[in-house]
């Protein structure tokens, strides 16, 4: 244990995701020894983030304005919606530069253990967006784990009567990898999801 303020800082840093007690200590001492100007810049960045950032009222992604950059962009195809769990999943998909439609961020996945049910996710908002005729396809891109799959199944059942095409991201082999390194579960999925090779 350190004295007063230093320990307070370590405790606060330790609450952040991915930072254990050792890393928290390291960051704290780095800050103590840093140029006050650098520290002030960090403080300002953190304050700005809490002051300016909010969630897009259409898709739920992080945004500095009422609607996020993607929802404002007229070049994005409004007929395809990609449903993801977290804003960071949007970033991951954007990096592919393959998807030109719009997003819907649920804010998590169904997990009764953590007390997260459908009402805690932005499903009502999704249904609201689908009631306009614009959307023709919903791509469900929740995580390929138990909770993500459960959320996908739930969404598919819920949205089916609305008459839109519902698709799920494929599971399978990583591109550029070796078959031998795939675990048996992934390999099994890849077999299930095999496709016709059309030449």
């Amino acid at each position: 244990m350190f004295e007063g303020v230093v320990q307070d800082l370590i405790d606060e840093l330790g609450r952040l995701p991915g930072i254990g007690p050792k890393s928290a200590q390291r960051i704290a001492f780095h800050l103590v020894q840093s140029d006050p100007v650098d520290v002030q810049r960090l403080i300002t960045a953190m304050q700005e983030v809490t002051r300016k950032v909010r969630f897009c009222e259409v898709c739920g992604n992080v945004s500095e304005e009422e609607r996020c950059r993607i929802c404002r962009d007229p070049r994005r195809d409004p007929s395809i919606l990609c449903v993801v769990e977290e804003p960071k999943d949007v970033v991951a998909i954007e990096k592919t530069r393959e998807f030109r439609g719009r997003y819907h961020v649920l804010g998590g996945a169904i997990s009764p253990i953590e007390g997260i049910g459908p009402d805690d996710l932005r499903i009502k908002e999704l249904v609201g967006r689908l009631s306009s005729d614009e959307v023709t396809e919903v791509i469900i891109a929740t995580d390929p784990n138990l909770e993500g799959e459960a959320t996908a199944t739930y969404l598919a059942r819920w949205l089916k009567p609305m008459g839109v095409r519902i698709t799920r991201l494929a599971s399978g082999l990583p591109v550029g990898g070796d078959l031998e390194y795939a675990d048996e579960l992934t390999l099994g999925r890849a077999f299930e999801g095999r496709r016709l090779l059309d030449v």
Binding site: P112, G117, P118
Partner: peptide, 12 residues
């Protein structure tokens, strides 16, 4: 009671 997701867990 919120039983809407029970079917989903039944499946899994």
């Amino acid at each position: 009671a919120d039983l809407r997701t029970l079917d989903v867990w039944d499946g899994h």
